[in-house]
Design a protein around this nucleic acid. Structure first.
Length: 321
DNA sequence: TAGTAGGATCGTT
DNA sequence: AACGATCCTACTA
């Protein structure tokens, strides 16, 4: 699968920008804010479905252009294709550099941003794999994995519920579906799910390119951990909570540190955390009542306790990292 | 009303 | 046996 068009529908990847913009890239766009609630108009604007509508200034990053780069060493020398002036972070105006140098500085800075962005995307996928216990490559998913991924994405980005629209589909089926197929199954968020799946497909495609021969490549580390955890032991609740806490830009809306050094955290959205745990454990009936009972079992095991000053929905890891 | 605490029981690994 | 899910009663903010 060495060619660009090899097997994963790469030619469709450019439509994936919307997913990036609403997901992992949100950290760059919104400075640490967690993903925003789904808004059909936003989604359509970002996807350019309204040709006349302006894109929000600085929101577009040519991530997928980079994922498509011929050279797998793109992390070091990816070439920006267009619109560098739209980069949200870089502003070399006013540095007083000559025009040529100015453009070079801008390009180098853009490369750094691109590397950061792709790195974040890969880390997010790695975390999701760990939390969901699924393979990073959608082609490997069984129908249960697909269902998990759909549910997870739906809850993480607060999309409208798709119900059983994607039931009984394998990962291969899913990957073979067009954007229109997605829309037919879910009118409201089929296109957004399609965009998110595109990101996963691209990441798996990159992994395919970078391994197994290129072990020294920087992206390899990102995946090896995910691989080991996917095939490993069932995750414990306290590990699950810790994973969520380590990704504040994705999960900060439902759980966050109050004092990371002391291991004190607060569950901001008890129902949401319980739902995510339920998805992870294939327990649709999971709720906070049951989840909190499990947390309380940790008291006597010395894993989690209530802080000295007890507060509602606030717990403390006995042994902070 | 929602969260807290902990006993009891059951299923899975 | 460990772990967590489920159901329960009593209590609390």
């Amino acid at each position: 699968m060495g060619s660009r068009d090899g097997g994963l529908g790469v030619s469709s990847l450019h439509s994936g920008r919307a997913g990036l913009g609403e997901g992992s890239l949100a950290i760059l766009e919104r400075d640490g804010e967690p993903p925003q609630a789904w808004d059909p108009d936003d989604a359509k604007r970002a996807r350019g479905l309204h040709p006349g509508a302006e894109r929000l200034p600085g929101l577009y990053l040519p991530c997928f252009d980079m994922l498509l780069a011929e050279d797998a060493t793109w992390l070091m020398k990816a070439e920006p294709r267009k619109e560098p002036e739209q980069c949200p972070v870089i502003d070399s105006q006013g540095l007083g550099l000559p025009p040529g140098l100015d453009a070079q500085v801008e390009e180098r800075s853009l490369e750094q941003v691109q590397s950061m962005v792709v790195g974040e995307v890969l880390k997010d996928i790695e975390t999701a794999c760990k939390l969901l216990n699924i393979n990073p490559d959608p082609m490997e998913w069984n129908p249960g994995n697909v269902q998990k991924w759909v549910l997870w994405t739906e809850h993480l980005y607060r999309l409208p519920q798709v119900g059983r629209a994607f039931q009984d589909l394998s990962g291969k089926d899913l990957c073979a579906m067009s954007e229109d197929d997605f829309r037919q199954r879910s009118l409201q968020c089929g296109d957004v799910l399609y965009a998110h799946l595109d990101i996963w497909k691209s990441a798996a495609w990159m992994k395919e390119r970078c391994s197994p021969s290129d072990k020294l490549n920087g992206t390899e580390d990102l995946w090896s951990e995910a691989d080991s955890s996917c095939s490993g032991q069932p995750i414990h609740l306290w590990q699950f909570l810790r994973e969520l806490l380590l990704k504040p830009h994705s999960y900060g809306r439902c759980i966050r540190w109050l004092n990371k050094e002391k291991g004190i955290f607060k569950i901001e959205d008890s129902a949401h955390v319980a739902r995510l745990w339920g998805i992870r454990k294939n327990r649709p009936a999971m709720n906070y009542d049951k989840l909190s009972r499990s947390i309380r079992q940790y008291y006597k095991k010395g894993i989690i306790r209530k802080p000295d000053v007890s507060q509602r929905l606030v717990y403390q890891f006995v042994h902070p990292v």
